[in-house]
């Protein structure tokens, strides 16, 4: 009888431990609370699906960028940054009227990475895993990145044609998918505030599924030509969506920045 009683206690403890009742974090005001953990089974090595960025777990006042703690710039970067003109007070070089702003996104320049993660008019991101890569799609601009997992190495040579979205390789470290990328065109901004970068930029991303419906991400920026130290990112959380919400075709909406739509133009 004692064994049966003990067995019942063990059973109830197990049920409680595996339940989806969230444990609220303390001290998180102004941001979304930690997500309710889903107890649906999932493959930690499969990022496949549609994901959208949330404010879950971010510190109050967190900006749309790597983190609020941008390291000091080098002289070179200060020179570039001094020419940027935005309408934002935070992290920017000054607040400018609309007709003077020169954010390259206004002219439909590609947003580049990592800005496309947190400065998109449409926030959808999708991962698709194939045999030699993980493909990262973005709803904004219909952009994609190949995160090659076939063993190839990033080039560190000087004669590489830089790309708006760089070159990337990925690998698994335990349950974390680690992506390293480089050779970015230096015309993009890292965020809407004008944070610059050089062609020496290297980005490291770490993705980990914390449960079936949530993905945590850290992005660190290393750019010795622009910043005196690594710009370490705060944790971002993505939530999985079963069905993309901005399309009736169960796919991403087509969201392209079209320069001819920015002004009135005669149509054919």
């Amino acid at each position: 009888m004692r064994n049966r009683f003990l067995g019942s206690i063990i059973f109830f403890i197990a049920v409680f431990a595996l339940s989806s009742v969230p444990l609220a974090h303390s001290g998180q005001t102004g941001a979304q609370r930690a997500p309710a953990a889903s107890n649906k089974p999932f493959d930690a090595h499969d990022l496949t699906g549609y994901w959208e960025l949330t404010n879950i777990g971010r510190p109050p006042g967190a900006l749309n960028t790597i983190s609020n703690n941008r390291p000091p710039m080098t002289d070179w970067a200060r020179g570039v940054f001094g020419k940027t003109k935005t309408g934002y007070k935070e992290l920017s070089s000054g607040v400018y009227p609309e007709n003077q702003r020169n954010d390259p996104a206004l002219w439909c320049d590609p947003l580049g990475f990592p800005r496309i993660l947190w400065n998109s008019t449409t926030p959808g991101m999708r991962f698709l895993q194939a045999s030699s890569e993980v493909i990262q799609f973005f709803e904004n601009g219909r952009a994609w990145r190949d995160l090659w997992t076939d063993g190839r190495k990033l080039s560190t040579g000087e004669d590489v044609d830089p790309r708006w979205f760089g070159y990337a390789v990925g690998k698994w470290e335990g349950d974390t998918f680690v992506v390293t990328s480089n050779n970015y065109i230096d015309k993009t901004w890292l965020d809407q505030y004008g944070s610059p970068h050089s062609d020496k930029l290297t980005v490291q991303e770490r993705y980990r599924r914390t449960d079936s419906d949530h993905l945590e991400m850290f992005v660190d920026i290393t750019d010795p030509k622009a910043y005196t130290s690594t710009w370490k990112g705060d944790k971002k959380t993505f939530v999985r969506v079963d069905k993309p919400t901005r399309s009736d075709f169960n796919d991403f909406s087509e969201n392209l920045c079209v320069w001819s739509e920015k002004k009135v133009r005669p149509r054919l």
């Binding site: 190839r152 190495k153 040579g157 590489v160 044609d161």
Partner: peptide, 9 residues
């Protein structure tokens, strides 16, 4: 794509 970007398998 320049052949030297990724090297060879």
């Amino acid at each position: 794509v320049a052949p030297g970007i990724w090297g060879k398998r």
